[in-house]
């Protein structure tokens, strides 16, 4: 049905999409996980209440999350150029993806950590555990199932964003869909890219859920 050229292109698209999604998620967690932890512990009923810190992080998270991704993509062009050296292509797309993902991830992490039973935290405190120990040995361990579900959802969301970035020259499957489907009316290719995107989300979802269930010792 497709020429080997098209198939080559689709494979490259899949590669780029995976590259953008995984790298952005990784960098997103690099910043988003600490931010989520800080949000959790600095909150009024956290283990280290600090209303100023909480308010600052809270406002940042809300502002960034309320800016539409396409706007963020454009606003960040100078910043992206500064870091990557150019403003198009899949590596360049990672920068705005990370910026968008960080507050989103921080919120996911915050809500996962909030699920941890206050009694278990109290028990750790009664043993003389420091804040750092409580975070690393209690919060992150007890919430791991929920954190993995969070990673799964994040992967799906970033994949969608990367496709959106592709439409403005970011590479990946989204790029192919817009170039062939929208500009050249090759509906077949567009349909295939969409199906591939759905499949990727499905695969992430399945792996993530399996993993989180396997690691959950609560039943």
């Amino acid at each position: 049905m497709f020429s080997s050229e098209v198939i080559q292109m689709l494979i490259k698209g899949i590669g780029e999409t995976l590259y953008m999604t995984l790298a952005s998620t990784l960098f997103g967690y690099l910043f988003g996980l600490p931010m989520g932890i800080l949000l959790t512990i600095s909150d009024r009923d956290g283990i280290r209440p600090n209303s100023i810190l909480y308010k600052i992080l809270d406002v940042i998270a809300n502002i960034v999350r309320s800016v539409p991704f396409l706007i963020l993509l454009i606003v960040l062009i100078p910043f992206t150029r500064l870091i990557v050296g150019k403003s198009y292509g899949s590596t360049a797309t990672i920068v705005p993806l990370v910026v968008a993902a960080v507050p989103y991830i921080a919120r996911m992490v915050e809500s996962s950590l909030r699920e941890v039973d206050a009694g278990v935290i109290e028990a750790a405190r009664s043993m003389g555990a420091s804040t750092f120990t409580i975070v690393t040995k209690v919060l992150l361990v007890e919430a791991r199932t929920s954190l993995i579900v969070g990673v799964t959802i994040t992967l799906g969301t970033i994949l969608g964003y990367s496709a959106m970035a592709g439409t403005v020259g970011g590479g990946g499957l989204g790029d192919i869909a817009i170039r062939y489907g929208y500009y050249r009316y090759e509906v077949g290719i567009m349909a295939v890219t969409v199906v591939l995107l759905i499949l990727l989300v499905q695969i992430f979802q399945t792996i993530g859920m399996k993993l989180s269930v396997r690691l959950d010792k609560r039943k």
Binding site: D117, G119, V120, R125, S126, M127, G128, V141, T145
Partner: peptide, 23 residues
């Protein structure tokens, strides 16, 4: 000092408060 002192004062609870993800 307080964290160290708590080593001497253990506590148990109504709802046990064990780490559910640890054996």
């Amino acid at each position: 000092e307080l964290l160290r002192q708590r080593k001497d004062i253990a506590m148990i609870f109504q709802h046990f408060n064990l780490l559910m993800q640890k054996n």
